[in-house]
Structures are given as structure tokens and as C-alpha cells.
Amino acid sequence: MDSALAVLNAAPLWLVVTIKSALLLLVVVTTFAYAMLAERKVMGWMQLRPGPNRVGPWGLMQPASDAAKLILKEDLTPSTADPLIYKLAPFISLLTAFSVYAIIPFGAGSQGTWAIGNVDAGILFLMAISSLGVYGISLGGWASGSKYPLLGSVRATAQMISYELAMSLSFIGVLILAGTTSLDGIVSAQARLWFCIPQAVGFVIYVITAVAETNRTPFDLVEAETELVGGFHTEYSGLRFGSFFIAEYVNMLTVSCIATLLFLGGWNAPFGLTMVPGVLWFVAKVATFMFFYIWLRATLPRLRYDRLMAFGWKVLLPVATLNLIVTAVVVAVRG
């Protein structure tokens, strides 16, 4: 083990980063595939039906068959579409969804944190990259050259920029408490007390805005099938549709990771249960958050669009601002 680490330390940086990225990509894509299966299974149980159970034992090969189906499907481009942007949009979505993982740490060992890159401005970097995710959806909807995708993408843009504000404000509360912007530092600051307790309001705001940012039920106005056929990806088929699909689930995974890092103590073990490795705690917390997502989808109906916008601007934003002010004052007074 030590000799293997020595070899790794001697290897050039680009090689190490490439190997780490390839491994992480594999892990994230596999997680996406089984998150999708888990969602269908859990939703099935919640609605008193078995869920997918035909492909492989207990339906475990379902993701593979879905992938094969998506790859083999015909790739259609509507004649009214703008071909260049239409083909570019799914890639923008995928790129922004995956590039976040360059800096997310999954655990800590004696050799430092388990991340591809450990940057000091970690949380700002996350905000920067995830704020680019909206382009895939808005450009894709516009380039389809058809009215329902356009409506879907206009909704998505408005919704995502509105909820991003409250989300950023909920981050700043955590930053004030931790006193650092590096994700590593934020997790170490939670060694004694997870930030979901002193930042309870911020945590609730984050959870709501996270669901809205990833366009999931009850905030999935972007692809409201009763109003917009399929929303921004109505015209997409085959692997290009698959790209949007993967990006959505990877984004879900990302916001779950951020929730774990910022509010749920990262890889810190609860109740002093340190015999379980930190990375397992991290995975368990992320999985809990993902389950919460699925639970929401099976439970809640979709919001009306004007209610959604009013909620974002008139409730979440003022409450987030108030939370920020109170946190700052308390931290300043206690010194």
C-alpha cells in the first residue's frame, strides 16, 4: 500500500489527475444509473407496485438495458431547429454537471482529502460551475425551434436564477460560521456540531432551493407534461435526450453532496461512531438525501408557476437574508 502511494506521489500531476478523474467519472456514472433504478423501485413501493423487475435479478440490469435503448434510438433533429446549438446544448449540460466533481472531497485520510483538486475557494467554485448549468436547458429549449421547449426553457431560466439567489444566501451563513471557503475547512469546522443545527433555517432554505435548482418535483415546471408535453427536451431523442437525463440525475447527486458537505458534517461520524470509515458516512448521508428527493417526488403535487415565483422571491429570499443577518450579528457579538 505504501509503495503504491509512493509510486502515485512520484507520478506526474497530469497523469494522477487523469487517473483520478477517470475513476471518479466511472463512480459517478454508475451511481447515476443505480440512483435512477432506486428511484423507480422506491417510487414503485410507495405506490404499491413492484417497480422494474424483469431485466436481471430484482431488476438490477435495468440501467444497462435503458442505456442500450437510448444509444440505439434514432437521433432526430427537427427541421425547424438550429442545428449547431441544438447539438451543443446537451453537452453543456453534461459538462457542467460533471465538472463540479473536480473539487468535491469525499473523505479525508493521512495523505490529505480525497478529492481531485482541493481548492481554497471551493464553495465559490461550486457556485460558479453550477450557475452555468442553466445554459444547457435554456439553449436546448431555444434551439429546438418549437413552442413547448421554448416555454419550458424560459420557465427554467427564470426559476433557476430566482432560486439561485436564496441558495447562495444560505451558503453564506455556513461560510460565516466556518470562516473559510474551502470545502475541506467547512467539513473540519463541523467536527463537533453539524451546521444543520445552528443553521437550521439555512438548511431548510437550501433543501428547498436545491430541489428547485435541479428542476425536480414539486418544482418541475420546466418539464410539466400536462402543460408542456415534455418541456425543454420535447424534441430531443436518443443519446442527446439521455445527456439531459444524466445531467439531471448527476445534478441531484451534486446537490446531495453539497448538502452533506455544508450542513450534514461531511465525512464526520455522528455520535462518535468513528470505527466506520468517513467515506462510508459520506455515502450514507448522500444516499439519505437522495432518498428524500425520491420521497418528495412520490408525495407532492406540482406547484403553480406564479406561486413558485412568488414563493422564491417573497418568502425564500427575505427569510434567507434575515437568516444571514442574524447569523452575522450572532457571530460578531460572540466574537
Binding site: I85, S131, S138, A143, G145, L150, S153, I161
Partner: peptide, 27 residues
Amino acid sequence: AVIQLIVYSGAILVLFVFVIALLSSGV
């Protein structure tokens, strides 16, 4: 660098897309 992405790409340019998508009909 980070602020460049957050402010210009993440906020201002999104508004450009929004306005163009709203104003221009078709591609």
C-alpha cells in the same frame, strides 16, 4: 476568476439568453 463566472456567466449572460428567447420568435 470565480467571480467572473458567477457574475458574468451565471447571472448577466443568463439574462441575455432569457431576453433573446423571449423576444426572438424562432431560430
